[in-house]
Design a protein around this nucleic acid. Structure first.
Lengths: 188, 188
DNA sequence: TGGGTCTCGATGGGATCGCATGGGTCTGTA
DNA sequence: TACAGACCCATGCGATCCCATCGAGACCCA
C-alpha cells in the first residue's frame, strides 16, 4: 500500500496556504473522501501536527467504538479525539490552509516540514524537526550499541524533493529512523 | 460516515441567536428531519449541551430499548434523556435560538464553543471548554499508553532525554496515538 | 553524453463566493 | 398595544477558485 515517506519543506504564503507535497497528495487521493481532504490534529506529545486520510480517521472511530455510548468517559475522550480534529480541504492547487489553533500548536510561521511516517504524516516547524531528528538518530545509535545489533545500517537517503531554492533547510530525506524499530520493511 | 469534528466558536447576538457552524449544518441536513432542526439537551455530566440530528435521537431510543418496559430505571432514564430535550429550529441563515433553560445549564452568555464529538456535538461556554479540553487530552494520553502498550513495547527512540534545542515536549516518537493497530499495516 | 526543451509541482496574487453577524420588518400571541 | 419569534436583507472578512510565473527534474535528440 502507499505510505507517506520522506520529508518535504514547503512555504506558508501570505494567505496561510501551504502546498501539500504532491506525493502525499497522491496517497490521500487514493485513500478516499474524494481525496479532497486531510484529517489533521495536534500531536499529543510533540509540537507537531498529525495528519492523514480516511484510514487515519478510521483509527479514531475504532478507538472509540470500544467505549459505551453516552458514558462520560466516551464524551471526554471524544473531546480530544474529535474536538481537536480539523478537516482541511485541499484546494485545486493542492494547498491547504492551516487554522490558527493548529499553527500555534506546532509553532508554524513561514515554513512547514512534512514528515512521512507511513500511514500518516506530521507537520513540523523545520528547525524543531531538525533538532528532534538529530536526537532520534542519536537514540538509535545508542540502542544499536546496546543490542550490538549490527544489522541494517540505515541507508535511507530517499528524498527527492525540491531543491534548496527556498534555500537553507537542506536537510531532508527519509525520516525513517524515527519509526518504531518494528516495521523494518519500510523500504522496498 | 459524516461526523461532527473540530471546534468552532460563534457569537450569540442580541436576539439570542447563534450560527451553527456550516460544516455541522451540512451533516445535520444529511441526517434527516428536513435538516431543519437540532435535538438539544443538557449534558448529563458536564456544564454543556449535547446536540445532534436524527441519528442522535435514534441512539437515545435504542438505549432505552435495552431496558425493560415499565421499569423504574427506564422511567427515570426516559425523563432524564427526553425530559429536557429541545428541538431547535435552524432558520434560513443557519442560526438557532437557545432557550433560557439550556443557556443556563451551560452558562452561556456571549459566545458558544461548538465541539464536534463524532456522532453528536456539544455547546460549551468557551472558557469552561478550554479546561475540559485540557483534561481530555491528558486522558487520551493515558489511554493511548494502555492500548499502545501491547505492541511495540520496545519504546525505542523515545528518549526520556530530550533532544537539543526545542527539546521539551518529550521527544516521543508520537506516531500512532490513534492507531492501536497502526504502523504494521504499512504494507499492503 | 551534453545541451535544449518539456512537464509538473510549488508559489503569488487577483477575483469570487460563502459564512458568520447585525438589523429591520411582519405576524401571531398575550 | 407590547413582545417574542421567524423571515429577509445588507455587510465584512476570510476561504476558495482560477490564472500566471518560476524553477527543477525528466525527457529527447543530436
Amino acid at each position: 500500500m502507499d505510505r507517506f515517506v520522506s520529508t518535504f519543506i514547503n512555504k506558508i504564503d501570505a494567505k496561510g496556504r501551504v502546498s501539500v507535497p504532491a506525493s502525499f497528495r497522491a496517497i490521500l487521493e487514493r485513500d478516499g473522501y474524494a481525496g479532497g481532504a486531510v484529517y489533521c490534529y495536534p500531536s499529543l506529545d510533540a509540537p507537531a501536527l498529525d495528519a492523514g486520510g480516511q484510514t487515519l480517521a478510521g483509527n479514531i472511530d475504532r478507538l472509540l467504538d470500544g467505549l459505551p455510548d453516552y458514558s462520560d468517559e466516551r464524551d471526554e475522550l471524544s473531546v480530544a479525539l474529535y474536538g481537536d480534529v480539523h478537516t482541511l480541504a485541499i484546494d485545486q492547487d493542492g494547498r491547504i490552509v492551516l487554522p490558527e489553533a493548529l499553527r500555534a500548536h506546532a509553532g508554524l510561521s513561514t515554513h512547514v516540514a512534512f514528515v512521512g511516517l507511513g500511514q500518516k504524516f506530521q507537520m513540523w516547524e523545520p528547525a524543531r524537526f531538525e533538532a528532534r531528528r538529530a536526537a532520534a538518530r542519536e537514540k538509535v545509535r545508542q540502542h544499536r550499541n546496546l543490542f550490538g545489533a549490527g544489522r541494517r545500517q540505515l541507508a535511507p537517503v530517499v528524498g527527492p524533493q525540491r531543491g534548496p531554492g527556498s534555500g537553507h533547510e537542506s536537510s531532508h530525506e527519509s525520516s525513517h529512523e524515527l519509526g518504531p524499530g518494528g516495521e523494518g520493511g519500510a523500504r522496498e
